[in-house]
């Protein structure tokens, strides 16, 4: 007993842990934590015409949530953001699961080709994606109308990106098209990690085909789907680039594609005659941060904790 205590006393402070952690901690603090703290701080200030900064407390937040001009834009952007997220959850992730299931079939010629082809858009720049889709969907030069015409559906064609009713859905689907490869890859990896003997045992019990997927494999990949959902949530609520590339900072028509990211950009950097307002911008950024934080926490406590994990 005494011997052990002496050993504990003699054990030196683990400096090597500090040294090994230091680079990551320093870099992460400098590029993530410091800017985040600075953003939070900025949101409690305002400035005069001469550029002097002064403390205002919660006035910026009061304006954002209660002043009808700011509040209307904020709730509109938030609602659009939720819609953008829902489209991804309902379209991107199920298609991702489906594609992963197809890819993991035992006999599939050209598997690597499909896998690569579907993943390629996720690696392209959003500016290229935005430009290409704008051209494809253009009512003047675009090929969509002709392509729809080949199957006799050209009456369905419209200037989708220019109509309030369809612009956001169109953009969400472009984004789905771009990023569907990511859930596909993650789920494909999860499916490959399921040991063969589980499928074999299920086979012996008479479970085959679709039933094998839904009754055996799907429950095993729920945790991965959960992670994908939360990544989609974070990605969508931080989204900005595609909307900006296709519709510009005013997120037209009539703000129907305005999401929190474009609203933040417009406020922070200004637009045309509107001068940038870093303090209201920081306020919006803080609100976005809180929304994402609440969403992620709700998920971690509400869903992830209750999820059952299987040991293989």
């Amino acid at each position: 007993m005494q011997h052990a205590r002496a050993a504990a006393r003699r054990k030196p402070f683990p400096w090597h842990v500090v040294v090994f952690l230091a680079p990551a901690v320093l870099i992460y603090s400098a590029v993530m934590i410091y800017p985040l703290a600075e953003t939070l701080r900025l949101s409690f200030f305002d400035r005069t015409d001469e550029g002097m900064r002064f403390w205002v407390g919660l006035v910026n937040f009061e304006r954002l949530f209660l002043d009808s001009h700011w509040a209307d834009q904020f709730w509109n952007a938030l609602a659009n953001n939720f819609y953008f997220f829902v489209v991804h959850m309902l379209v991107q992730n199920p298609i991702g699961v489906l594609l992963a299931a197809l890819l993991s079939m035992t006999y599939l010629p050209g598997r690597t080709f499909y896998r690569t082809a579907i993943f390629v858009p996720a690696m392209l720049s959003v500016v290229i994606i935005g430009f290409a889709w704008k051209l494809i969907l253009s009512p003047i030069w675009g090929v969509s109308e002709t392509l729809l015409g080949l199957v006799g559906l050209d009456f369905l064609f419209g200037p989708w990106l220019g109509k309030e009713g369809s612009a956001l859905t169109t953009l969400a689907l472009i984004s789905v098209w771009q990023y569907v490869g990511i859930p596909m890859m993650l789920i494909y990896a999860a499916l490959l990690a399921i040991p063969e003997d589980i499928s074999e045992a299920a086979n012996l019990d008479g479970v085959r085909g679709m039933a094998l997927f839904f009754k055996v494999k799907l429950p095993l990949i729920w945790p991965t789907i959960g992670i994908i959902s939360i990544l989609t949530f974070i990605g969508n609520f931080n989204a900005f680039d595609l909307i900006y590339a296709v519709q510009g900072a005013l997120a037209g028509p009539n703000f129907s594609t305005d999401i929190l990211g474009t609203f933040l950009y417009r406020t922070f950097f200004g637009h045309q005659l509107e001068l940038g307002d870093p303090h209201m911008g920081a306020t919006i950024a803080t609100a976005m941060f809180l929304i994402i934080l609440v969403g992620v926490m709700a998920y971690l406590w509400g869903v992830q904790r209750h999820m059952r994990r299987y040991q293989f």
């Binding site: 700011w70 005013l250 028509p253 009539n254 703000f255 637009h271 045309q272 005659l273 509107e274």
Partner: peptide, 26 residues
């Protein structure tokens, strides 16, 4: 451009959106 686009909501931004809305017929 002079003075009247100094506040929030910004008149010039509003004019962009509104002029497009008028031509779009909404």
């Amino acid at each position: 451009h002079q003075i009247v686009s100094r506040g929030t909501p910004n008149l010039w931004n509003d004019m962009w959106v509104t002029s497009a809305n008028v031509i779009n017929g909404v």
